[in-house]
């Protein structure tokens, strides 16, 4: 049974038992969902008004940015054509709600309310409004399990948005901290740098924000610099997430765009 875990043979069994476990997750989500509903019912009019104003302002700011984005995107496509590299298509997204948190505190995972029947697949990237959250590792018929980028067994390829320095970002098991591995002491990474996904890992889409560098330390005795970062996504506060689907064919030559 344990050896089977290494291969894919037990996946159907796991999928079948998923029919039984899904109601448990849904049921365990009921109390917190009711709490949310109750607190959303008990909001004062003034609060709603100010929230509405805030959102309207935010929409305006975002719309102004989108106006520029359309031009930039068109320009980007033209430049890419000049460089002979394939254009990136918009990815389809699927919204899902988090219905369960991993009870084991040593693992950073959660359960969402969309599963195999909704077209979720293993390895699918999961984001929230702030940035990359993690990837789907396990599919049930009605639920799916998401491994967060902060889990100690997770790593992905990122690059510094400012200058394109690439590195490997690994979780250390804490919800608000990740670490860059094997960064040379001389690498040009400073505090406040935004790390975005590169897509080199063939799993995450390219160009989504992942984390922000908060500490760079050089230990004279160690061969690599210590770089710590904080995920830009609301890892421990997110309640709704987006699943990004790859519609574009896998890019063949990533190196050509550097």
């Amino acid at each position: 049974m344990l050896l089977d875990q290494r291969s894919e043979h037990v996946q159907p069994l796991r999928f079948a038992i998923g029919y039984l476990t899904a109601p448990v997750h849904y049921l365990a989500h009921v109390p917190s969902a009711m709490g949310e509903w109750a607190s959303s019912q008990a909001v004062s009019r003034a609060d709603l008004q100010s929230e509405k104003n805030h959102l309207e302002r935010q929409i305006m700011i975002l719309q102004q940015r989108v106006q520029r984005l359309a031009v930039l995107e068109a320009e980007n496509v033209r430049l890419r054509e000049l460089l002979n590299s394939s254009a990136e298509l918009d990815a389809r997204v699927l919204a899902a709600e988090i219905i369960g948190i991993e009870p084991d505190p040593s693992r950073q995972e959660f359960v969402i309310n969309k599963g195999g029947h909704a077209g979720v697949y293993r390895g699918q990237a999961v984001l929230d409004a702030g940035g990359l959250l993690g990837q789907v590792v396990d599919i049930g018929p009605l639920t799916a399990r998401v491994l967060l980028i902060t889990d100690a067994s997770h790593a992905l390829s990122v690059q510094v948005n400012r200058n394109g320095v690439r590195a490997i970002l690994a979780g250390i098991g804490q919800p608000d901290r990740v670490r860059l591995l094997f960064v040379p002491d001389t690498a040009d990474i400073i505090e406040g740098d935004l790390l975005v996904s590169t897509g080199l890992d063939q799993r995450f889409p390219r160009g989504y924000p992942v984390a922000e560098v908060i500490r760079v330390a050089h230990d004279p005795g160690a061969p690599f610099a210590i770089v710590e970062a904080r995920p830009t996504a609301n890892i421990d506060r997110a309640s709704h997430v987006l699943l990004v689907e790859r519609t574009a064919p896998r890019r063949e030559r990533e190196g050509g765009t550097q």
Binding site: L2, D4, V10, I17, T21, P103, E109, V137, D138
Partner: peptide, 17 residues
């Protein structure tokens, strides 16, 4: 135990054993 394995996303067989 198998049920708990799938429930908590553990290795299949861990809680079963």
């Amino acid at each position: 135990g198998l049920f708990q394995d799938v429930l908590t996303g553990a290795v299949l067989g861990q809680h079963a054993v």
